[in-house]
Write a protein that binds this DNA or RNA. Structure first.
Lengths: 332, 332
DNA sequence: TTACTGTTCGATCATTTGATCAATAGACGA
DNA sequence: TCGTCTATTGATCAAATGATCGAACAGTAA
C-alpha cells in the first residue's frame, strides 16, 4: 500500500514501514517465545533470513513488546534482591520468602539460605579460614548446616564469646561449626564489650587474643549477624551493655550494630564510650574480606540498611520483609 | 532442619523437596528471562552446575512459572476479533496469530491465550465453580496454566470422562486443573455417548451423576472445545461414535459439536439417534453461564461458525485462520 | 551386608543463537 | 547519469544453549 504516491512526505511512509516491521516483530516474537520455534523455522515462515529474524526479535524486545512474568511468589524476592545488589554493590543478596509466622519464625528460612551460602565455601578442598559473628541467626545457620568432614578448614570468632559474668556466649557458632566439620576452632576469649578501656587494652595485650585476631585477619570470608539498637537488642538483653549505655547509644542515633560496633543511619561507626570498649575486630580490618550478613525481619530493617549504607557488606541474606523495608527506604 | 518429625510420611517430604526445587526454578527463571543472565552466571549464582540450571529452567517452563506475553495488537487479528465480537454479540474474542504449520500446531497458541482467560477467572478470591469440556485444546489450556493455590474453587466436567471401553478420557482437564490449584474436582462418571437410550437414562438416574450435574449447573463459566463432524472428528477417532453413526450425522448436515451435541450450520442441535444418547449437560442448561469456546484451525472454521450462529457462546478463543474463515463467510 | 533399581548429577557434543563484517541496494545530490 | 553515502542484508564465527549419555548416589529388598 505504500506504493501509491511517490512524492508523499517522509513521515507517513516511515511510520507505515515501522508499523509493518513491528507487526512482523510481534509475529516473530510470538513464534519464538510462545511457540518455541527456532529462528530458522521462523525465518522460513516469515520469509526472511535468519539474521533478519534475529533483528526482529531484538526490535521486539527493545520496543517492549515482549513481557515476561515469572509467576511465583519468589519473583518479588528476586526483584528486591537485584535492586539491593545493584544499589549497594554487593556480590549477592539472597531474599528468602517472608515467613508469616512470629518474629523469630523467619530464622529457619534465613538459616537455611545462609547455610547454603556457607556450604558453598565449605566444599572447597583447599584449606579455608572463615570467621563468624554471633547471634541467633548465625547460630541457627550453623545448626541448619549438614555435617561434612572438612578438617582442613579453620573457623574463628570475630566477637568475644564470653559475657561479663564469665558465662560463655550461647549464640556462638564456631563451636558447632567446628564440631560438624572436624575443623580447627579459634575463640575470642573476651566479652563483647569490656568493662573499661583499660580492661580492653589488657585483653588486647594477651597473646591468645592477639593470636586469634591474627587468624581472623586471614579469613577469606565472614558470616555475621546484624543487631538492632533498641530495648530488644541482643546486645542489651544479654547484658553486654547496660541500660544507661543503651540510652547513650540511642541518644547518639545508633540504629544498628555489626560485631558490637554501633552505627548510625549512614552506617558510620559511632565513636562513644562503648565503642572504645568493644573488643571485636575493627570493621575496617574486614574490608578486604567477603563480609556476609545474615538478618531478617521488618524490625531489623533500619539496622540492615545502616550496614548497607556503610558499605561494610559484600553479601546479604535477608527476608522479604526486611528487603521490602530497604527497597522502600531507598526508593528502589 | 528436617530433623524434627521422625515418623513423617513420604508425601510431605516429597512436596517440600518439590517446592524447594520450584523455588530455585523460579529463581533461575527470573535470572534468565528477566535478568537476561547467561546460564553459566546463574549456575554460579545458584551454586549448581550449568546442566542443573537447564533442568531448573525446563521445570519452570513445564510448570508454567514463566509467562510470556506479546504486547502488540496484531492489526489483522484485532480487526477480525472486533468484527466477530460485534457480529455475534460476544463478551470477547481472542484471535491469536495463525500457525502455518500442521493442524494441531496451533494448539499451543490457543492454549496460552485460553489459559490467560481462564486465569482471569481463577484469581478471584471468592469461591468459584467452573466447568470444563474436553478435547486437546482444553487439555492444552489447563496445561499452559501456571500453578496457583486456589483451594476455594471447584471444577466440574461437562462431558463424560470415560470411553465406551472404560478407559478414562485422556483429554480431561479437570484433574490437571484441580491438581494445579488444589481445588475440588467433580468428574462425570459416564461415556460421552451412551450405548443406548436406556443406558443413558440409567446413568442419569445415578445419584453421583445427578450430584455432579447439580454442581455443573452452578458454574459461573464454562470452557469448552468445539468439535468437527467428519472423519477426523475426535468424537469419531476416539470411538465415542461409530462409523455408521458418523455417517448418520453427516447425512443430517451436522458440521460441528459442542460437548458432544451435534449441530447444523445454523447452530441448531440436531435431534437424532445420537443426540438421544449424549450424556453431557444440555446446552440449554448452560445458557445462563459464560460459555467460552476454544478452537482454531481453518478446518474447524465451519464448526466454530455453527457454534457462533447458534448463539451458544459468550467468548471465543481462536486463531487467525479460523477467524478469517468466519469473517469471510459472514461478509464482515 | 550386598545386590539391585530407580533417580539424579555432571561431562560432552550437536544445535541454536547473537554479533561482527563485508557487500549490496537504494537515496540523494551533483 | 554518475558517484557517494547510508541503510539494510546476508555470510561467518564465537558464545550459549539443549540433549544425550555414563557415573554416582540413595533407597529397597533379599
Amino acid at each position: 500500500m505504500a506504493g501509491g504516491i511517490v512524492g508523499s512526505l517522509e513521515q507517513p511512509n516511515r511510520v507505515d514501514k515501522f508499523e509493518l516491521k513491528l507487526d512482523q516483530a510481534a509475529r516473530a516474537a510470538w513464534l519464538s517465545y510462545v511457540g518455541g520455534r527456532t529462528q530458522d523455522e521462523i525465518a522460513s515462515q516469515l520469509g526472511v533470513s535468519r539474521p533478519g529474524v534475529q533483528r526482529l526479535l531484538a526490535l521486539a524486545r527493545q520496543e517492549g513488546l515482549v513481557k515476561v512474568h515469572i509467576d511465583h511468589p519468589l519473583a518479588n524476592c528476586m526483584m528486591m534482591s537485584d535492586a539491593i545488589v545493584a544499589r549497594f554493590g554487593l556480590d549477592f543478596c539472597d531474599v528468602v520468602p517472608a515467613d508469616p509466622d512470629a518474629s523469630d519464625g523467619d530464622v529457619p528460612y534465613l538459616a537455611v539460605a545462609g547455610a547454603e551460602r556457607l556450604a558453598r565455601y565449605l566444599v572447597a578442598s583447599e584449606p579455608l579460614t572463615l570467621s563468624l559473628g554471633t547471634g541467633r541467626a548465625i547460630r541457627a545457620m550453623v545448626e541448619a548446616l549438614s555435617r561434612v568432614d572438612r578438617p582442613q578448614h579453620r573457623f574463628v570468632s570475630l566477637v568475644g564469646n564470653v559475657a561479663r559474668d564469665g558465662s560463655s556466649n550461647r549464640y556462638d557458632g564456631v563451636m558447632v561449626l567446628a564440631d560438624k566439620t572436624g575443623a580447627e576452632r579459634f575463640l575470642l576469649p573476651a566479652p563483647v564489650v569490656a568493662g573499661s578501656v583499660e580492661e580492653k587494652q589488657a585483653l588486647q595485650g594477651q597473646r591468645l587474643f592477639q593470636a586469634v585476631t591474627e587468624v581472623a585477619k586471614q579469613a577469606e570470608a565472614s558470616f555475621i549477624g546484624i543487631g538492632r539498637i533498641d530495648r530488644r537488642a541482643t546486645l542489651f538483653q544479654d547484658h553486654f551493655i547496660s541500660e544507661t549505655e543503651l540510652e547513650e547509644l540511642l541518644a547518639l542515633d545508633a540504629v544498628g550494630e555489626l560485631l558490637g560496633w554501633p552505627m548510625n543511619q549512614a552506617g558510620e561507626v559511632i565513636d562513644c564510650s562503648i565503642t572504645r570498649r568493644v573488643t571485636s575486630l575493627p570493621l575496617e580490618m574486614l574490608r578486604g574480606q567477603s563480609l556476609v550478613a545474615l538478618a531478617g525481619g521488618r524490625d531489623k530493617g533500619p539496622a540492615i540498611l545502616a550496614a548497607l549504607q556503610g558499605g561494610w557488606l559484600k553479601g546479604l541474606v535477608t527476608d522479604e520483609s526486611a528487603a521490602r523495608y530497604i527497597v522502600k527506604s531507598c526508593n528502589l
